[in-house]
Write a protein that binds this DNA or RNA. Structure first.
Length: 425
RNA sequence: GGAGAGGUGUCUGAGCGGUUGAAAGAACUCGCCUCGAAAGCGAGCGUGGGGGAAACUCCACCGGGGGUUCGAAUCCCCCCCUCUCCGCCA
């Protein structure tokens, strides 16, 4: 959400942003709404001041045993007018809030302007694609052959876009999640959090998923509960409506969770294998930072995520998303894309965003400046560190062997207890 | 799920219809004292919004939302959360 007075004074900025992000924005409607609302508030506050004065006067008169009847009668009228104005203002507030809640964040000046993923900018590349003396198979074939992935079973238990991992496959998923958490907590200074996997409407609104993207989420019937689409929601809301001290910043947390997405807009896309699932595991990185340090911290966060791929020896590239491809709440986003040899392409495995004060304002997360002065909103950053399921795919595809076995990267061996997943499963 | 108790400022904790934005204590900040510190003494110390160059001033906020009233932290209703006991359960 945007700061109201900033928004009011920089409408041109938002008009330009809407164009770059392919969003629609009816500024005339805002102007009319804003004008009416402010005029009403001013007038109403004068009435309230009058009522407050009169209340004191009534109290005084009563104490002195004098008649306050006339004043009470007059205030009865005033109160009625205040009540009507309050109702109208509440309606305008709601309307204005709805208006502001669906406007995406302003992109940072370093973000390239563009319409789609085609305009994203590759900023670096690490490693090289592995060489095979055979044709590498897609992960679902390798997984099925090794007996570590059972998609028909998942279809029976639940439905499409779900997976059953078996034996070493399940072990690999668990090993990856543990490895990620260990690296981020021991080497990168994040505090581990294990949050609920179910969140409420307020949390989703604060993080930016609602009200605009309800269709992407699973909602629990007859409750205010939703399955979390990402631990970003929980981690962000850890400090909702709280004021941190400047000394606490940057506050870095990480969490492993399951994530649930309806994938409503992805019908027919990535239907083979487990690339796009309704349920997947992810280790999330999240930072609450000082506004002046957020871009510095953003680079560090991306590096923290990249470290995991380097340790796993997986070839990847890092891409700066253009205005048209960024998420709703983000000011600047890097995607990390890992190499998948079966399709000869890079696929997203992490998305790291600086949301500046956009989410903090929605959630009321401030900090008290050391030097004194007004409390300010923190900047929030989030990123996958990494998506576990997609890393599973990358390991299985990049380390598959001609005989159907899968070599385990060195760093994972302590977690797996073996050097390779045997061909037979 | 049943029965009860409770949610007030950074914390503890008063208030239970009218100078209460909120007593008191603690913490914190500044000053005095001290070689320094502790104790002591004096002063300050919530958030958001409107107006003003500023001094300052107005409005809102005592879990959330409604209601009663000239006036609500205080009375009534609904909801949420916490705690205790019982039941159930991983």
């Amino acid at each position: 959400m945007h700061d109201l007075s900033f928004f009011r004074e920089h409408l041109d900025l938002y008009a330009a942003m809407a164009k770059n992000r392919a969003a629609t924005l009816d500024l005339e409607r805002f102007r009319a709404l804003d004008r009416e609302r402010r005029e009403l508030i001013t007038a109403n506050e004068q009435l309230k001041a009058q009522r407050n004065k009169a209340s004191d006067e009534i109290a005084r008169l009563k104490k002195e045993k004098q008649d306050a009847g006339a004043l009470i009668a007059e205030m009865k009228q005033v109160s009625e007018r205040i009540k009507q104005a309050d109702e109208r203002i509440a309606a305008l507030d709601a309307e204005q809030r709805e208006f502001l809640l669906v406007i995406p964040n302003l992109p940072h000046s370093s973000v390239p302007v563009g319409a789609s993923a085609a305009d994203n900018k590759e900023v670096r590349r690490w490693g090289a694609p592995p060489k095979f003396d055979f044709t590498p198979k897609p992960h679902w074939e390798v997984g099925e052959r090794a007996g570590i992935l059972d998609l028909p079973a998942a279809a029976k238990i639940t439905g499409a876009r779900f997976a059953v991992y078996k034996g070493w496959g399940a072990r690999l998923e668990r090993a990856l999640a543990n490895f990620f958490l260990d690296v981020h907590t021991r080497e990168h200074g994040y505090t581990e959090i294990l949050p609920p996997f179910i969140v409420n409407t307020a949390s989703l609104t604060a993080a930016g998923q609602l009200p605009k993207f309800a269709a992407d989420l699973f909602k629990l019937q007859d409750t205010d509960y939703w399955l979390t689409p990402t631990a970003e929601v929980e981690l962000h809301n850890l400090y909702r409506d709280e004021t941190l001290t400047e000394e606490q910043l940057p506050l870095c947390v990480t969490a492993w969770t399951a994530c649930f997405r309806s994938e409503a807009g992805a019908a027919g896309k990535d239907t083979r294998g487990i690339l796009r699932q309704h349920q997947f595991q992810k280790v999330e990185l999240f930072k609450f930072t000082h506004p002046e340090k957020s871009y510095e911290e953003h680079e560090k966060l991306v590096a923290n995520a990249e470290t995991i791929l380097q340790k796993l020896g997986l070839h990847y590239r890092t891409v700066l998303l253009c205005t048209g491809d960024m998420g709703f709440a983000s000011s600047k986003t890097y995607d990390i894309e890992v190499w998948l040899p079966s399709s000869n392409e890079f696929r997203e495995i992490s998305s790291c965003s600086n949301c500046e004060a956009f989410q903090a304002r929605r959630a009321g997360i401030r900090f008290k400046p050391k030097a004194g002065g007004k409390n300010e909103f923190v900047h929030t950053l989030n990123g996958s560190g990494l998506a576990v399921g997609r890393t599973w795919i990358a390991v299985v595809e990049n380390y598959q062997q001609a005989d159907g076995s899968i070599l385990i990267p060195e760093v994972l061996r302590p977690y797996m207890g073996v050097e390779r997943i045997p061909a037979a499963g």
